[in-house]
Simulated assay, not measured.
Amino acid sequence: MKKIAIHLFVVSLLFMYESTFAQSAQADLTKWPKGASPKEIGKRVADRFIATPHPNFGRPTPPKTITYPEVCAWYGALTFEKESKGAKLKIALIQRFEPFFKEEASLVPVPDHVDYTVFGSIPLELYMQTKEKKYLDMGQAIADKQWGPPEGPRVKEESHLYHRMGHTWQTRLWIDDMFMITAVQAQAYRATGEQKYIDRAAREMVMYLDSLQRENGLFYHAPDVPFFWGRGNGWMAAGTAELLRSLPESNPDRPRIMEGYKKMMATLLKYQANDGMWRQLIDDPESWPETSCTGMFTFAMITGVKNGWLDKEVYGAASRKGWLALISYIDANGDIREVCEGTNKKNDRQYYLDRKRLTGDMHGQAPVLWCATALLRK
């Protein structure tokens, strides 16, 4: 009997070990099947970005100014290049930017709207990587303009009210803003070390969280549109993670932002499908798997795991599933499929279900690059 008991004890220990090992393997963010590593995928998508002319929201004509989806993909390509140490890619990304100082200067957006101001995150990243002052001058001026006095044709009555309250006059309480605003302000902080940039971004984030976050941690597309649209929530998830990544522990707004972030991540965890994807309408099982929101949610979770904010086993497994699912939608050209087209708000479920599903749209390319970067970060 004693031998049997010892044998059973050893078997149970082995079973526990194997279960723990299997769990750890499912949550491993360092080892990948062939062709699925962040270095391989990131290079394919970054090379595709370099080869793509300036996009114009799917229109055949060139843009009048650089669009925010291109900025988001450009930022992703630059951060991926930094983490992967891709010297050739760095040169190509710098060369793509240089015409903005000369023949393509008219393509630099006027920073009078969040979708235009986010452009400043690119020269600020270039400054951090090259230390060339011309990039700092351009990027810092754009970041400062966002908190300067309201001016220009886009100024509304509420612009002055927000400015007097210490918020950016570009505030409009759209959930997209919490990537667009925090991206450029966090970049200004990283580039200069000046506390004011990260502090103002944190205050803005708290105001958006207090105004817009629902009981379950998610966000309606708009107060009058009670649908949890995937990419809209993706902007908030990615923006919160990006902000927390650089927000000092001593910042008084950090606990509130972390609370909002963790609440959102916990709910997203419940709605991740068995195949690793999230859907066009997050809580609607009949809506289609959508890649841009899947990439953004995966990025936010990877960042949380890497920084110790989220449980490594639980969210590491979700991150791994999300990444492997996401990259299965990338075609031979390096373009990702099933990207929701640019979407306005509408209080109509069918409107969201009927949105066009694009291939190679920068809204989808960008989060793939963010995820590749986050996976490579130590």
Rank of each mutant, 00 (worst) to 15 (best):
A46I: 08
M205F: 09
D28K: 04
H54R: 13
I330T: 07
R214S: 12
D331F: 09
E103M: 03
M205I: 06
F57W: 12
D115V: 12
I142K: 06
P367A: 09
D177K: 00
R96N: 12
R245H: 15
M16N: 12
R337Y: 02
G166D: 10
A237R: 03
T117N: 09
Y68T: 01
E81G: 09
A273V: 06
A5Y: 14
L247N: 01
G334L: 07
P69R: 02
E98F: 10
V206Q: 07
N307M: 15
I50C: 14
S292F: 03
D253V: 01
K131V: 09
E290I: 02
N216F: 06
D115K: 12
N274H: 14
Q26R: 15
G234S: 08
D361F: 08
L358G: 01
L247C: 04
R44Y: 02
K306F: 05
Q146T: 14
E290H: 07
L369D: 05
A92M: 09
S37T: 11
Q195V: 12
F227M: 05
W235G: 00
D199G: 05
Q146P: 08
Q95H: 14
K2A: 14
W288L: 05
K64H: 11
E18S: 13
F297W: 08
A188C: 10
R231I: 05
T291E: 09
V10F: 12
V339A: 02
H7S: 15
M205C: 10
G58T: 08
K312D: 12
E286M: 09
T52V: 11
A241C: 07
D199P: 08
K82G: 01
A87K: 15
R256T: 08
N274Y: 13
F57Y: 14
D144R: 08
V368H: 03
K306S: 04
R44L: 12
N274W: 11
T373S: 09
H54V: 02
D176C: 04
R59I: 02
L124M: 11
K270H: 12
D47N: 15
D253H: 15
